[in-house]
Design a protein around this nucleic acid. Structure first.
Lengths: 194, 194
DNA sequence: GTCTATAACAAGATAGAC
DNA sequence: GTCTATCTTGTTATAGAC
């Protein structure tokens, strides 16, 4: 078995991290208490504090581990033949986007998480922007008029907005938006110079 | 004094609603406990339960009252000479956007808030879309190719994304995005038919 | 309508046995 | 490394005096 078989960690520490991510994704960060994540990982509550001095330390570790795996996933997806569409699809994944939203909310008032999330978010933006740069150049887009970082933010942030709204049952305009994005991506690919 | 003088409510109920909004805006919904908002409003904790059966009922009322006032603010702003820019500016206001983000987070796992937020969000989208429709038509934009609801979502959601990111210290690409939006809005206004 | 007091419970975190 | 047991604090919510 390779070292990258991360699905079900055998060690308690790994299971705690995985369990915390799951609870945050499914029930929000407020539900990720030491007792709740311990139960989810199949250990007792006090063990959480053996591995992590405080709950914030656990959250930061979830962000680090999950972030690293997300970056890997992203790097792989962005090297296929249609990076812009890949960027749209990756940011439309409800699981990842939901967890990210929870960390945004957490970061809003916890400085330890804020600094970690900022570092992560900027790495993500750099990777996405690099992929967009290649794609725009290949399609003959004027990079002064439409800076890659802007295009990458437009695609990623709109995709995430749709996910976030879906999560609370708001879907007004979503169909039209998806169709419009689809059209823009097709136009860009079909008409170099547009 | 007119009935619309909402700034500093004299009654305890009004002050509780106002205090809750303030705490949510400044410290997040998790900080908006019955004790905390009572202290902020200058009353005792038990009084919260005299006016609101549960904390969720208080949150819903904050959303109703704040939403109504926001809709009013929006309707006024969107009738000026540059509705698209007004839409951008209104969704760039950190205070309103931050409170909205807190309600999105709250709604994620509280169904009473979810149904109220959904109704509110769709009213907002309708009003924004109506204003965008007028603006696009005036500028000769093809409404089939660029549906007003899509343009309204693009403007509002990107503005909000910048606010949300600002709140956690992420600013990479923001300058470029603001400049780009500015250019697009100027182009649209200057070249009817573009 | 506003208060004091308290019940009932869950949170983060620690001590110490094994 | 994992457990049981417990301390302290803070939470929603209620009872009942004034």
């Amino acid at each position: 078995m390779p070292a990258a078989a991360k699905s079900r960690p055998a060690d308690a520490r790994g299971r705690l991290i995985e369990a915390t991510a799951k609870v945050m994704r499914d029930e929000g960060y407020a539900a990720a208490t030491s007792r709740r994540v311990a139960a989810e990982a199949g250990v007792k509550q006090a063990l959480v504090y053996y591995y992590f001095p405080t709950m914030d330390d656990l959250f930061v570790e979830v962000l680090r581990v999950g972030g690293e795996s997300s970056l890997e996933h992203m790097r792989a997806a962005l090297t296929n033949d249609d990076p812009l569409r890949a960027l749209w699809l990756i940011n439309s994944e409800a699981g990842r986007t939901g967890l990210n939203a929870e960390f945004m909310a957490l970061a809003n008032h916890r400085k330890a998480i804020r600094v970690e999330l900022k570092a992560y978010a900027e790495r993500v933006r750099d990777i996405e922007t690099a992929a967009v740069t290649v794609a725009l150049r290949a399609n003959g887009v004027d990079l002064q008029e439409h800076p890659p970082v802007v295009v990458s933010m437009l695609i990623a942030q709109i995709a995430r907005s749709l996910c976030n709204e879906d999560a609370v049952g708001v879907t007004l305009g979503h169909e039209e938006m998806r169709a419009w994005v689809d059209r823009q991506l097709a136009l860009l690919a079909a008409e170099p110079g547009g």
